[in-house]
Design a protein around this nucleic acid. Structure first.
Lengths: 252, 252
DNA sequence: AGCGCTCCAATTGCATGCAGTTTGGCGCTC
DNA sequence: GAGCGCCAAACTGCATGCAATTGGAGCGCT
């Protein structure tokens, strides 16, 4: 029972890691929505630490892509563009393909039981809020990744799954988690049977359908900053006056 | 001065990012070998910043997997296990497959020229040290990733490529970069022709062969004084507080 | 000599303080 | 009323200081 897969890279028990975990969870449960401000002072006060620590935690979360940090500006919860969301799902499909390929036919009975227990928990949570359902669904995938015992794979799958979580809260409409739960069960079954091709296919379609359910309109561009949109166009302008557009209000 | 296409996500111009870049480069050029100690004091002294900043930089590099951080212990350059190295290459193959799939047939003339120029540089560097060759080869892949304009893909490919760099310095024998250079040229050609299947295949075999050439047997490393190693990297730091000469005696 | 203990230098963990930058509101002008 | 500039509050960037922990040298015991 080697469940003690503590990542040596980070996530020990120092204060920074605690704050990271708390914020990460708050973000993926949508308690903190994309764009929410995260001033160092407030965080420090809230968690009973100094600004130094809060700052460090924000740095870590920025490295994971959950938080956006701009010099001299208040940190905010990341608001991925639609295209970034799409990219994140593409990457996720590849990575989780790697996971199930490694896992097919190699799961112990205990592991299968653990997975089933998790999905049961997802089932029980169906009555609750969407946020909790989404978190549990995400954690199912992370649990799978952990079973590979590959720290690198765990880290990347976790990160990208959290990112996808974030985009779900931005672009998805009221959620229907039930089919996802069934797909989870199907994946477990195929993994147990050791049918690698089948499980790869299942996982691919599972993630693809989640992505498609979530990322509906090709051009919502909600919450996207005008300057970002115009950035590629400004590159071709040679005048030095393009740098500063007046503060144009977003229509909306 | 030409407009810098710096990504805003991180790597701006604050001191932490500068130190991260310097250390990252020192690590992938094997000036800092896996296992090398990175005390906050020494880093701060060398780069002319306070320990707070050095610490923050170490945190970022740890998040990228280049540095290992253990509570109350001196940070060290990461020493991936052989298995982790193998996993990193597997992930890399998947991610770079995504890159070339997106890029096949979509490159502009300028981009193709840029790629060719880079490989030319690799060619010229063949007489130099292995470290530089390895860095250039890695940067070729990162350059490809950047052409997807997908920040997420760029970040993950960069990270995992750096990690692979690290393992190369641990497990590879005297390098033969020439075939890699030819493979780079072949990839460019296939990308330009838009032959997606071909380029996927080429990239897959390219990375696989690099991995197989590299991951053979461990090689022992010798240690050097940190401050000496970092001397050339500290030049980029613009601070009057930079300490010019090491004043820490090496053992013996 | 070999083994364990103690103690101190080295180093990290964290808070606080100060300086520089951004934000947003207020009043002034047109 | 809309725009512009100014100023204080809020906030970040960074250095420094102090307490806690580590590890290793030196010392004594067996």
């Amino acid at each position: 029972m080697a469940a003690r897969a503590t990542h040596k890279t980070s996530e020990s028990s120092d204060k920074v890691s605690v704050i990271c975990r708390a914020l990460r969870r708050a973000i993926i449960e949508q308690a903190l929505e994309p764009g929410a401000k995260l001033p160092e002072d407030s965080l420090g006060e809230r968690f009973g630490v100094s600004r130094t620590i809060a700052r460090h935690a924000l740095g870590q979360l920025a490295a994971e892509g959950l938080v956006e940090l701009r010099r001299n500006r208040i940190a905010v919860v990341a608001t991925p563009s639609w295209q970034e969301a799409r990219d994140a799902f593409d990457i996720r499909i590849q990575l989780e393909g790697l996971v199930v390929r490694q896992l097919a036919g190699k799961l112990t009975k205990n592991q299968i039981a653990e997975l089933n227990a998790h999905v049961d928990a997802e089932d029980r949570a169906r009555g609750g809020t969407d946020a909790v359902s989404i978190r549990l669904a995400t954690e199912f995938h992370i649990l799978l990744a952990q079973m590979t015992s590959s720290p690198i794979l765990v880290r990347y799958v976790s990160e990208v799954a959290y990112r996808c979580c974030l985009t779900l809260s931005l672009y998805s409409r009221p959620h229907s988690t039930e089919c996802a739960i069934n797909e989870h069960r199907a994946i477990i079954a195929a993994l147990a049977k050791g049918d690698e091709a089948k499980v790869m296919d299942l996982m691919h379609h599972h993630l693809d359908s989640v992505a498609n359910r979530a990322l509906v309109a090709p051009a919502p561009q909600r919450g996207r900053d005008l300057l970002d949109i115009l950035a590629p166009y400004a590159d071709e302008v040679t005048s030095d006056r393009v740098v500063k557009l007046p503060k144009v209000a977003r229509h909306g």
